[in-house]
Design a protein around this nucleic acid. Sequence first.
DNA 1: CGTCCATCTATACGGATGTATAAATCCGGG
DNA 2: CCCGGATTTATACATCCGTATAGATGGACG
Lengths: 194, 194
Amino acid sequence: MGHRELLLDAARRLLEDKGYAHITARDLVAASGTNLASIGYHFGSKNGLLNAALGDVFEEWTDALAEVALADPHASPLQRAHLTWATVLLHLADKRALLLSFVEALAQAERDPALREQLAEVQDRTRTRVAEIVATSYGDADVHADDPRCTAVAGFILAVCDGLALQWLLDPQRSPRPEHLLAGLNDLVARSQN
Amino acid sequence: MGHRELLLDAARRLLEDKGYAHITARDLVAASGTNLASIGYHFGSKNGLLNAALGDVFEEWTDALAEVALADPHASPLQRAHLTWATVLLHLADKRALLLSFVEALAQAERDPALREQLAEVQDRTRTRVAEIVATSYGDADVHADDPRCTAVAGFILAVCDGLALQWLLDPQRSPRPEHLLAGLNDLVARSQN
DNA sequence: CGTCCATCTATACGGATGTATAAATCCGGG
DNA sequence: CCCGGATTTATACATCCGTATAGATGGACG
């Protein structure tokens, strides 16, 4: 394996247990057994390397979620949403540093257009994907993923995912539990129909 | 005004238009017309100063939101939620750097227990406050803010707020619009009742 | 007026970091 | 075998940052 692959691997490992912002070029060298200058040679800069690695990890994470949401082909949209939220919360504990990496990257993206573009693209792809799942669960061939109803539901589900993760990051103890979310949602809608 | 107040003011100003992470001690000195050593003298450290300022700004922001949510005493919970989401999205454009400061602070909080404690406390207070509003709109004297139904709804509303803000930060163009959220929510629940 | 404490000033220190440079090494092809 | 481009190595550089230190200043008070 060349230094390129070694560095990419090390970056992924570090992202998953040290976060993004506090990884130094020398950390990457130590974890990969390569050389300081190889970072610049293969990736242009430290951030170039980190961002390349981050994209991969991010994508895998959303892949895993999509798989869960699709597990039961007969689930209703709400059931899928609930399942997704529950899964997010369930796996959060293992992925704390990774989640932190996303948050740090999000902050960093404000000053790094390339990174921002990359993250936005992943986000958009995720939204589209969720919209597709929603469309499928309509069971109506005329309803496609780009139907406003589907994108709306997708945006909503993902907003809850993001918000959940954020609240959990700050205070796991008091963060909402999935069944409460579902109850809250039902209650919210029920009360407005009186 | 002593250096203490000058620094606090400068910190708030910088937080609102430069974010958190990239403020240097020398920025604070320049913006306040004080002295490098005054930071240490009055606040112990640069982060001490920044965190003190951040707490204030954060609190004002949630105050403003609560006021909006309470504007119409006859609104249903869902109407309040919708109004809150719409308001968040509406004001986001003015508060971009501030929102970024929160995200950066959230990342920083992982390595700064005092900051984390402080942010978690504000979050908790906010959640309680929203729960109180929800309880009020039940119009039932037996339902209090600590009723699970209220805290559940509150957690849910805030999760959506957070998620919305996050998506908007990354990509304002394609972030969900409040009316779509509402439509998505209704659709989600309606479809699950078939 | 003189003392003393709080506050303010100017500067130095120590350290860490990302990147560039130049030399060494490797390896495939002629 | 040997050449040359690709890669790897070792190190130097330049910069920036947070904080500590030591002394100046100012004003309240006896």
